[in-house]
Amino acid sequence: MNNLNPNIARVFYILPPLLGLISVAAGAFGAHALQNALPDKNIVWWQTASDYLMYHSLASLFTLSFYTSLPQIRHCCTLFSIGSLLFCGSLFFMALTSNKSLAILTPIGGLFFLAGWGYMIWLFLRLKIKTTS
């Protein structure tokens, strides 16, 4: 990430495994500590948040593997990270509190996830691929 501030570039590399770590810890916490402490629907919210956090952590790692040939792909990581904060964060909050006041953030986070995937598709469609014939 040559054209980025080194501290910002570091965030792009640290954030995906950090989110993966949080996902594993949250999944284990939900399965062991929360299983009998919360209603079933809250456990489902918790598990969905943990799963989507892992999916998008792995997706961000995947996108970084294309950075040298496609530097704009870092924007997918940004979209996935914002989506994780809004989507997963709101579900974690709702699961722990049964308070749905942040529920509006869940679909907004989902839109950020969709935007990240859509932007990735658009970038890959525009990619010039050299073939040997």
Rank of each mutant, 00 (worst) to 15 (best):
A37Y: 09
L105G: 06
K100S: 14
T131N: 12
K100D: 12
L19G: 02
K128S: 08
L21R: 07
G109Q: 10
L86M: 15
F113E: 00
A9T: 06
L105W: 12
L18S: 14
N99F: 05
K100G: 11
H75G: 03
N42S: 15
A115C: 02
L61N: 02
F113N: 04
G83V: 01
Q35C: 02
L91E: 05
G109A: 05
L19W: 15
Y67N: 11
C76M: 00
S101N: 12
C77Q: 14
G110S: 10
W117Y: 09
L70E: 11
I129L: 06
F93V: 00
W45A: 01
L96R: 10
N2L: 06
S23A: 15
Q47S: 14
I8P: 07
F29C: 00
T132M: 01
Y119W: 14
I121G: 13
I82C: 02
A115S: 15
T132N: 14
P16V: 01
N5P: 07
A115T: 11
D40Y: 08
V44K: 13
G27L: 01
N2F: 04
G116P: 03
M94A: 13
F66I: 09
A95Q: 04
L111Q: 02
T97L: 02
L85N: 07
P16Y: 09
T48H: 05
K100H: 13
A37Q: 15
L4Y: 10
L58D: 03
F93T: 03
H75A: 11
F92D: 03
L64P: 06
D40W: 03
L86Q: 06
F12M: 01
H75D: 07
F124G: 12
